[in-house]
Structures are given as structure tokens and as C-alpha cells.
């Protein structure tokens, strides 16, 4: 059964889109990630124009992050104040990102930029995760205890001015790195259509030394608002959010996620992470191949001086 996507301007098989949404939802539930960094490249592989894939990906992340955030809110593992400071940076970053996005689109380099950014990001994160999980698996095999990092240790981040007290997280931290982190993630949200949790969570834990229990809930809180804001801005400036595509992906995604969570609880952490790392690397490599292989036609035509 085909369905016409009015913004992407093409007909697609609804079951392929449903399958994509469910599969990514399943993985995001299993690994506790938003899934934007998988859904956007998958859509691009399925010939959805990158402009539409990115904006629609951001829309889809709103839905996939909400149920997680609600759960964390109920458990009390969400620091509203910390999340709001992150959000200030995030909204500014998303605004800047959409501006860069529109500019790249105008000069005809958007598709390339999105692909290159994905290759770099997926490549480096996949490699890091794989190394880390292989090390963890070896340790588990040899029954070595985990080397404990002392969470009380301070780094340069803690010497910055403009300190604020975050009661729920029980930390006293400068607002500068928090806003900065939010800004960076905001830029990625609007250019790549990702929530950015897979960067924000490690950065909050290792760089800002925020207690692990509030990290996931707080990052989800900020992701919801930044992706919602990005959806609005993309809709208003690039007209590139496909409501039909987004709806199919969201419904399939949230259902897939529920099953993913159940499976994820049964599997072991380091194996799970190794699996995700391999997947991330595979997507990155597939995108890299697309950049290197000689295109069918070196010419392309776009209406209105815009590139699709």
C-alpha cells in the first residue's frame, strides 16, 4: 500500500515506513536513545530528501522522548532547573542551526553537509562505544572490578564563574558550560534532526560531573523542548516537516519502543552497547560510501534557486 508524502513529494510504501519507525523505536527503547540519529539516515537511504528527513526526524524525536521524560518526572529523577538552563542554550543553538541549515540549502551544500556530519559523528561515537564495550566485556570475562572514577574530582569546568546551585542534582556548577552544551546540542538538532541524547548524556556525566540518576531525565526534558522548537522553526522557514511521514514514524516508533524496553532489560549492558556501536558504525559507513561513489549524474536541477 502506498501513501503519498505531501512535503517530500513522493509516494512510499507505508509498510516500509512503519517498519522503519518500529525498528528504530525498538532499538531506541532497548538502548534508551531517542533514535533520531538512526531515523534520519534511514529516511535518506529511502530517497526522502535530506531537508525533509532532518526536519521530520526532529519531529519524531519529540514523540519518542516524551514518554521517557514523563517516567523520569514521576520518579523524581528530572532536574527542572538544570534542564531549563540547558534549554536556554538549546533554543539559541537550534535557532542558529536553522539559520545555517537554510544558508547551506541556498548554496546547494546542505545534503553534503548533513552526510559528512553524520559520517563524522556516527563514526567517532560508534568507535568510542565499541572500544568501551569491548573493554567492559573483557573485564567481565576476567572478573576484574570496575576501575572507580572518583566523582568528586574537579576539572577545569568547575573553575568557571557564574556558578548556580542545582538542588535536585546536588551540584554547584557554572552556567557557562551548561548553556554551551545545550547550544551545541541545539545546533545538531536543527542540522541533523537528532535529539542529541547520545552526546549530551556522556557529556553531562563525564564533563559536568552531574549525578547519573538525574542525567537521562534532564536531557530528555531539554530534548523535548528543543526538538519541538526546531520542528516549529523548520516548518516556518523551510516548510520541510512532513506531517504524514512524521505521524507514521511516531506511531510505529512509540509502539516499537515498548517492546524494545522489555528486550533491553533482559540483555546485558556491554553486549547491548557493542551491538548499538556496530549498528551506528554500519549506518556511518553506508553514508560514507554514498559520498565517495560516483553519482549517476553529476548534474542536478532544483527549482527556485533552492536545492532539494
Amino acid at each position: 500500500m502506498t501513501v503519498y508524502l505531501p512535503i517530500a513529494e513522493l509516494s512510499v510504501n507505508i509498510f516500509i515506513i512503519l517498519g522503519m519507525g518500529a525498528a528504530v523505536g525498538f532499538l531506541s527503547g532497548m538502548f534508551g536513545v531517542g533514535g533520531g540519529f538512526l531515523i534520519t539516515p534511514l529516511l535518506i537511504f529511502y530517497n526522502i530528501p535530506p531537508v525533509v528527513a532532518v526536519a521530520t526526524g526532529a519531529n519524531q524525536v519529540v514523540a519518542s522522548s516524551i514518554s521517557g521524560a514523563i517516567t523520569h518526572f514521576r520518579r523524581g529523577t528530572l532536574d527542572m532547573k538544570l534542564g531549563s538552563v540547558l534549554l536556554v542554550g538549546g533554543l539559541a543553538g537550534a535557532t542558529a542551526g536553522v539559520w545555517v541549515f537554510s544558508w547551506l540549502r541556498r548554496i546547494g551544500q546542505l545534503d553534503l553537509f548533513i552526510s559528512v556530519l553524520y559520517v563524522v559523528l556516527l563514526g567517532s561515537i560508534g568507535t568510542l562505544m565499541l572500544q568501551e564495550s569491548v573493554r567492559a566485556m573483557r573485564r567481565a570475562k576476567n572478573n576484574q572490578p570496575l576501575p572507580l572514577k572518583r566523582p568528586g574530582q574537579h576539572n577545569w569546568v568547575h573553575r568557571l564563574p557564574l556558578k548556580m546551585r542545582f538542588k535536585k542534582s546536588k551540584i554547584y556548577l557554572s552556567a557557562i558550560p551548561i548553556v554551551g552544551l545545550g547550544f551545541g546540542i541545539g545546533v545538531l538538532t536543527s542540522i541533523m534532526g537528532v535529539g542529541g541524547g547520545f552526546i549530551m548524556v556522556p557529556a553531562m556525566i563525564y564533563l559536568l560531573r552531574i549525578p547519573t540518576n538525574v542525567v537521562v531525565g534532564t536531557s530528555l526534558f531539554q530534548i523535548i523542548f528543543v526538538t519541538a522548537y526546531t520542528t516549529m522553526v523548520q516548518a516556518a522557514t523551510n516548510y520541510s516537516v512532513d506531517i504524514v511521514l512524521a505521524s507514521i514514524l511516531m506511531v510505529a516508533g512509540v509502539i516499537g519502543a515498548q517492546y524494545g524496553v522489555r528486550v533491553g532489560q533482559k540483555l546485558r549492558g556491554e553486549q547491548l552497547r557493542a551491538l548499538l556501536a556496530l549498528l551506528v558504525l554500519a549506518v556511518g559507513i553506508r553514508l560514507a560510501i554514498g559520498l565517495i561513489v560516483t553519482p549517476d549524474d553529476v548534474y542536478s536541477v532544483a527549482a527556485g534557486g533552492m536545492s532539494y
Partner: peptide
């Protein structure tokens, strides 16, 4: 679009 996402989630 955002509303649909919120309702779905």
C-alpha cells in the same frame, strides 16, 4: 506537528 507528537508520546 508538535501536538501530534505530544499526543502520540
Amino acid at each position: 506537528c508538535v501536538l501530534i507528537a505530544v499526543i502520540t508520546g
